[in-house]
Simulated assay, not measured.
Amino acid sequence: MTTKDIYSQSEHHMKRSIETLKENLMKIRTGRAHTGLLEHITVDYYGCPTPISQVAQLGLADARTITVQPWEKKMVAVVEKAIRNSDLGLNPATSGEVIRVPMPPLTEERRRDLTKVVRSEGEETKVAIRNLRRDANNKVAALVKEKGISEDDERRSNTEIQKLTDKYIGEVDKLIAEKEKEIMTV
Rank of each mutant, 00 (worst) to 15 (best):
A136C: 05
L143F: 00
M26R: 10
T42D: 11
M103Q: 10
L58W: 09
L132G: 11
I6L: 00
D152C: 04
V172C: 12
V79F: 06
T3C: 00
N24R: 10
I83K: 03
L21Y: 06
V43K: 11
T30K: 07
I161D: 10
S53H: 14
Q57F: 07
A136P: 01
I149H: 01
E146T: 09
G89E: 02
E154H: 05
A177S: 10
T125E: 08
V144M: 10
L58I: 07
L88P: 06
Y168C: 01
Q69L: 11
P92R: 12
I18L: 09
A82S: 12
V78C: 01
A33E: 07
A93Q: 15
I18S: 03
K145Y: 04
Y168F: 15
L132H: 15
L60E: 13
I52N: 09
Y7D: 00
E108L: 07
G148Q: 13
K179M: 01
T125G: 05
K73A: 12
E39F: 10
K73M: 04
T159W: 06
E39Y: 06
E80G: 03
L58C: 12
E160C: 02
Q54A: 08
K4Q: 15
R130T: 07
N138R: 15
L25A: 04
V101A: 10
A136G: 06
D152N: 06
R32W: 12
L175A: 08
T107F: 06
R130N: 05
K179F: 00
L60R: 08
R110C: 02
K163N: 15
E180F: 11
N131I: 00
I66M: 14
T159C: 03
E171S: 04
L132S: 13
K139G: 02
V172K: 02
V98K: 06
A56F: 08
T50A: 12
L106D: 12
T94M: 04
L90Q: 07
I52Q: 08
L38S: 07
G89I: 01
G59L: 04
Q69G: 03
E124K: 15
L58H: 01
L143E: 07
A128F: 05
A56R: 03
A141W: 05
Q57H: 09
R119Q: 13
M184E: 04
K22M: 10
V68K: 10
R119S: 14
K126N: 15
A61K: 14
Q162P: 01
S157Q: 00
L21T: 01
A177F: 03
L38N: 03
P102N: 03
V186K: 09
E123L: 02
K4A: 04
A61W: 09
R133N: 08
R134I: 10
E72A: 05
I41C: 04
N137M: 14
H13L: 14
A177V: 05
A142D: 15
R111H: 08
H34T: 12
E178N: 14
H40D: 15
V117K: 14
G59A: 04
Q162D: 09
S120Y: 06
V140W: 03
Y168T: 01
P51G: 12
Y46A: 13
K4E: 15
M184Q: 02
K15H: 07
V172S: 02
Q57K: 12
I18F: 02
S150K: 08
S120N: 14
D5S: 05
A177D: 12
A82F: 11
K174A: 11
K27A: 14
V98N: 07
E146V: 03
R119D: 15
A141M: 11
I52D: 09
A82L: 09
S53Q: 14
E124S: 13
W71S: 03
